[in-house]
Structure formats: C-alpha cells, structure tokens
Amino acid sequence: DRMTSQEAACFPDIISGPQQTQKVFLFIRNRTLQLWLDNPKIQLTFEATLQQLEAPYNSDTVLVHRVHSYLERHGLINF
C-alpha cells in the first residue's frame, strides 16, 4: 500500500518523512475508509474516527484530523 500522488502533494511532510510516518498515515487512512465503509449511511465524524482508531494510531490527533479532513474534502468519505 502506498500514498497516491494526490496524497503526496497534500501531505509533503509525510511523503518526505521517515518510512514509519508514512506507514502510520496509511494505517489511519485505510482504517478511516474502513470505518466509513462499515456504515456509509452514517456520517463519520472526526471524533468518532478518533474513538475507533486503535492505539497507538489514535495518539496523533492532528494527523488523524488532517487525514479525516482530506478524505472528506476529496469525497472519499461522507458523500
């Protein structure tokens, strides 16, 4: 699994950072998509996403918020 070119453009700090940071991003992105796909008729809020993310992935709330906002803005969740 890899970041898309659009994700890389929107998250230059992640793509240029350590490999582990990219893996954390990918986990948060994929898990958020999975959470929404589990029940697409219900809006997936940032707060609900954060509550359902497993530790330690829920510890970087800023990154979780950025990923959630990106997915929502680009019509990948909550459409």
Rank of each mutant, 00 (worst) to 15 (best):
D1A: 06
D1N: 11
D1S: 07
D1P: 04
D1G: 08
R2M: 14
R2W: 11
R2P: 05
R2L: 08
R2V: 04
M3W: 07
M3F: 13
M3V: 08
M3D: 01
M3S: 03
T4F: 04
S5Q: 15
S5C: 13
S5F: 11
S5I: 07
S5M: 15
Q6P: 06
Q6A: 13
Q6K: 10
Q6S: 11
E7F: 00
E7N: 03
E7C: 02
E7Q: 02
E7V: 01
A8G: 14
A8H: 09
A9P: 03
A9D: 12
C10R: 06
C10G: 09
C10T: 12
F11Q: 01
F11N: 02
F11S: 01
P12H: 07
P12A: 09
P12T: 07
P12E: 05
P12W: 04
D13N: 04
D13W: 04
I14R: 02
I14F: 03
I14Q: 01
I14E: 01
I15F: 15
I15M: 15
I15H: 12
S16P: 03
S16G: 11
S16K: 06
S16W: 08
S16F: 08
S16H: 10
G17E: 06
G17D: 05
G17I: 01
G17K: 05
G17T: 04
P18Q: 10
P18G: 15
P18S: 14
P18T: 11
Q19N: 15
Q19P: 12
Q19R: 12
Q20R: 12
Q20C: 12
T21W: 10
Q22D: 05
Q22E: 07
Q22V: 13
Q22H: 10
Q22N: 05
Q22W: 06
K23C: 08
K23A: 15
K23Y: 06
K23Q: 12
K23P: 04
V24A: 15
V24F: 14
V24I: 09
V24Y: 08
F25R: 00
F25P: 00
F25L: 04
F25G: 01
F25D: 00
L26C: 15
L26E: 08
L26P: 01
L26V: 09
L26N: 09
L26R: 08
L26D: 08
L26K: 13
F27L: 10
F27P: 00
F27A: 15
F27I: 06
I28K: 03
I28S: 01
I28T: 03
I28N: 04
R29L: 04
R29Q: 00
R29E: 00
N30C: 05
N30D: 08
N30T: 07
R31P: 01
R31K: 12
T32A: 10
T32C: 10
T32V: 12
T32M: 14
T32R: 00
T32F: 05
L33M: 08
L33E: 06
L33G: 01
L33T: 09
Q34K: 15
Q34Y: 04
Q34C: 06
Q34H: 15
L35F: 09
L35W: 05
L35C: 07
L35Y: 06
W36G: 05
W36A: 08
W36Y: 15
W36Q: 05
L37M: 14
L37V: 10
L37D: 15
D38Y: 08
N39Q: 09
N39P: 02
P40R: 07
P40G: 08
P40C: 07
P40A: 08
P40T: 12
K41D: 13
K41Q: 12
K41W: 11
I42E: 11
I42H: 10
Q43K: 15
Q43G: 08
T45V: 01
T45Y: 04
F46S: 09
F46Q: 08
F46P: 14
F46T: 10
F46L: 13
E47L: 09
A48R: 14
A48F: 09
A48I: 07
A48H: 15
T49V: 15
L50N: 04
L50R: 06
L50F: 06
L50W: 05
Q51T: 12
Q51G: 12
Q51C: 10
Q51W: 07
Q51M: 10
Q52L: 09
Q52P: 02
L53N: 02
L53Q: 02
L53D: 01
L53V: 11
L53R: 02
E54D: 09
E54P: 11
E54A: 09
E54H: 07
E54M: 09
A55G: 09
A55E: 14
A55S: 14
A55F: 13
A55P: 14
A55D: 15
A55W: 14
A55N: 05
A55V: 10
A55M: 09
A55L: 06
P56A: 04
P56S: 05
P56L: 03
P56Q: 05
P56N: 04
P56I: 03
Y57A: 06
Y57P: 02
Y57C: 06
N58G: 13
N58Q: 10
N58F: 04
N58A: 08
N58E: 05
S59K: 14
S59V: 13
S59Q: 14
S59W: 08
S59P: 05
S59D: 11
S59I: 05
D60N: 10
D60Y: 14
D60F: 09
D60R: 07
D60V: 04
T61I: 05
T61Q: 14
T61F: 08
V62Q: 15
V62S: 15
V62T: 15
L63C: 01
L63M: 14
L63K: 00
V64H: 03
V64L: 04
V64P: 00
V64A: 10
H65V: 03
H65E: 15
R66G: 04
V67W: 01
V67M: 03
V67F: 01
V67I: 15
V67C: 05
V67D: 01
H68K: 00
H68C: 02
H68M: 04
H68D: 01
S69D: 14
S69C: 09
S69K: 10
S69N: 11
Y70G: 00
Y70D: 01
Y70P: 01
L71T: 01
L71W: 00
L71Q: 00
E72C: 09
E72Y: 03
E72S: 08
R73H: 15
R73E: 06
R73V: 13
R73S: 15
R73C: 12
R73M: 10
R73N: 07
H74N: 14
H74D: 06
H74W: 05
H74T: 13
H74V: 14
G75A: 09
G75N: 13
G75V: 04
L76A: 07
I77T: 02
I77C: 00
I77Y: 04
I77Q: 00
N78D: 02
N78T: 00
N78A: 00
F79Q: 15
F79L: 13
F79N: 07
F79H: 13
F79C: 15
